[in-house]
Computed example of a mutant assay.
Amino acid sequence: MLLFPKLAGKIVNEVQMVIKEDIIVVDTKGLIIASTQQNRVGTLHKGAQLVLHTKKKLYIDEFLEKQLEGVRMGINLPILIDGRIIGVIGITGNPVEVEHYADLIRRLTELIIQETVHAEQVESKTRGLESYFYEWVNVKSVDQQFIDRGLMLGIQMQEPHLCCFIQLKNMKQKNEDGQFIEREIFEWFQNYFQMDDVVRFGPGRFLLLKSVDRHYSDGYFRSQLGEVKKYVEMKYHTSLSIGVGKTVGTYLIAQSYKEAQKAMKVAGKSESIVFYEELLLDIMIEEVPIELRKEYLEKTIGKVKNNQELMDTLKIYLANNQSVKGTAAEMHIHINTLHYRLKQMKELTEIDPKKTEGIALFYLALKLMDRL
């Protein structure tokens, strides 16, 4: 691997927190690419060139300081990754004084590099998975090449799966704090759903591909999602909405994906967990264009929608299954008052809330209002 200036700068910053001496990082050409002294960046370091050649530690005393171009008294050490030298780190100072922590600094440097490489590899695999999933949820057929690509990413396409969307609220703004929280939650999801695949699918949104093997339990999965929602909302103080598809897919998951999308749309309204299989009226409503919704509302409750008293009465009346006694008790009004309000509803809308047809029309209207 190559030692780039950005990574070298990170090494200098990290090491500088441990020691006060000046530090340089040199690439495989002998050029200083990072230093606590900016004027040294870009200059050739003859001492580092010797280290690159010998792969051994170099003590630079007063004599060598005068003999070698661009060097200062101190110690130069090879940076080794998997036995291969990828650069040199230099610590300025009296070699006798800095020697006792020189190897520690080198080890710290190598750990920083290994950690960075690992993080880049993980990020690379994550991007690969995201790209693959974006393709997979839209394809209508798969060939062997596509299947093999999935296997390389660790995806067992032949296994049955369900699609599940998880959406964090207020994650549209991609500021630094939001990105950190989203990344931390994503990593927690990956650990929690170890046997499944989780990918980021837009701002604050994740797609979970839930394995539905012989050990799968619908009840257990529901309890898992409940725990996930509770944990995230308590720790990060943000609401969580979850939509789960119905169709179990093996090589093709487009249907389950579309179902999860629709369930997610409904879940987002109430910030809850919604399974597609439980949706009836909600699915139909989501398919109705906005203009048609508005037209329907205007023809049903258009003349009373701004009358808070009548609207509250209608909502409570329907919530109590049209029980006059129950509605009057909840609203703390006389039964005659309730009858008068229901009569007003009929006169103003020409729809009778006491008849089956009227109940259905008003119930659908209230559902449409919630969506708007």
Rank of each mutant, 00 (worst) to 15 (best):
L3Y: 03
K6I: 04
A8F: 02
G9T: 07
V15F: 02
Q16R: 15
M17R: 09
I19G: 03
I19F: 05
K20V: 09
E21G: 04
D27Q: 05
T28N: 13
T28C: 15
G30E: 04
L31R: 13
A34S: 14
A34L: 06
T43S: 11
K46D: 12
E69H: 11
N76D: 14
G83E: 15
R84G: 06
G90S: 08
V96L: 08
V98K: 02
A102N: 03
L104D: 03
R107S: 13
E110F: 04
I113G: 06
I113Q: 00
Q114D: 08
H118R: 10
A119E: 12
K125S: 09
Y132C: 03
F133V: 14
E135F: 11
N138F: 13
G150C: 07
G154N: 08
Q156P: 06
P160G: 05
C163L: 09
N170M: 10
E176Q: 12
G178K: 07
Q179A: 13
E182A: 14
Q190S: 15
F193N: 05
F201G: 02
D213S: 10
Y231M: 08
H237M: 07
H237P: 02
S241A: 14
Y251N: 06
L252M: 10
A254W: 00
A254K: 06
E259A: 02
E259F: 05
Q261Y: 06
A263S: 10
L279P: 00
L281W: 04
E295V: 13
E298G: 06
E298M: 08
G302T: 06
K303F: 12
N307M: 09
L310G: 03
N320T: 14
S323D: 02
I333A: 00
I333W: 06
L348F: 13
T349C: 11
E357A: 10
L364K: 03
A365F: 04
